[in-house]
Structure formats: structure tokens, C-alpha cells
């Protein structure tokens, strides 16, 4: 019936508004729930989530060795061409020519942090780091070479 529906509407509306107001009041009286990070002040204690994707890095171990074989899977996976791998040929002790990376060029200014290169990598040579303070005064500084000078691929990784 129309009138009962009308009254039901009014009370239903009041009830649903009350639920919303209870929720905001709940947060209003609990300042501990505040999730704001006062960033430059808490720089030392800042905790970022593991899943946060800041930039692509290539971890090196203590012998200055990385796991990148230069297979260019990441370069192919990259949707916007942020990765360019320059390969060279090393001469192994047996006298064979072996493909290795010369430069892993990574353009942070083009990267969208989509994580596809990390997924594509067969030897887990690159990972996503948490660092997010990327501001520089010169754009060319955003083109990075990820493999350290003099580094070579770890033994046993093909």
C-alpha cells in the first residue's frame, strides 16, 4: 500500500543515514585509527609494504655477481620499451664465446611499474625495490644502468 511504503521509506532512510553517521562518529572518536603518514618527518621509521613497486633493481651479491644472462625476456616483456639490454660476448676459459650482458639500460622515466619484466625473468635477476624518492634535477639521471661495472653473471646460471 502506498502509505505504508511511504512510512517504510522514511524510516528506512533514517536508519541507513544513522548507520553512516555511526561509522563516521566511530572514526571521529578514535584518533588512533588515523592512517596518515607524516612523510618527511618519519623518513627514518617509514615502513613500506613488501608489494610496493618503486623501481626495478638488479641485486648483486658480495662477489659483484648478478643473475642476468642477457636473455632479453624482460626487454620483450616491457610494454613501453623502458628496458634495453646491450649484450656482449665473453670468452670462457674453454675458449668458447658466451653471451653476456654489457649494459642493462633501464629508463625509470618511462617505467610504469607494471612488474611484467620481473615476472618474465627466468632467473630472477631483477626485482622491484621499495625506493620511491626518485626526484632528480636532470632527466638524464633517470636512465640507469642496472648492472654494476665489472660485474658478471653468477656461475651455474644459464
Amino acid at each position: 500500500m502506498f502509505v505504508t511504503q511511504y512510512i517504510k521509506d522514511v524510516f528506512g532512510a533514517i536508519k541507513s543515514l544513522g548507520i553512516g553517521m555511526r561509522r563516521t562518529l566511530w572514526y571521529f572518536v578514535r584518533p588512533k585509527e588515523i592512517i596518515t603518514q607524516q612523510y618527511p618527518d618519519n623518513k627514518d621509521t617509514l615502513v613500506l609494504a613488501e608489494r610496493f613497486r618503486g623501481e626495478v633493481v638488479m641485486p648483486h651479491d658480495e662477489n659483484n655477481e648478478h643473475a642476468c644472462t642477457g636473455c632479453t625476456a624482460c626487454e620483450l616483456a616491457c610494454p613501453n620499451g623502458s628496458i634495453k639490454i646491450v649484450t656482449k660476448f665473453d670468452i670462457t676459459p674453454e675458449g668458447k664465446r658466451k653471451k653476456a650482458i654489457d649494459q642493462f639500460v633501464y629508463r625509470l622515466d618511462m617505467c610504469t611499474m607494471c612488474n611484467m619484466c620481473v615476472v618474465a625473468c627466468p632467473s630472477d635477476a631483477i626485482i622491484m625495490a621499495n625506493d620511491f624518492e626518485h626526484s632528480v634535477y636532470d632527466r638524464t639521471k633517470l636512465t640507469k644502468i642496472l648492472n654494476k661495472p665489472g660485474s658478471k653473471v653468477r656461475d651455474g646460471i644459464e
Binding site: T24, L25, Y27, F28, P31, E33, I34, I35, T36, Q38
Partner: peptide
């Protein structure tokens, strides 16, 4: 202040 506390801000 009221808006920020209700929106879990400072």
C-alpha cells in the same frame, strides 16, 4: 579538523 578525523586523516 572534524572532516579530517572523520576521514581518518590528521
Amino acid at each position: 579538523k572534524v572532516s579530517s578525523f572523520m576521514q581518518i586523516r590528521l
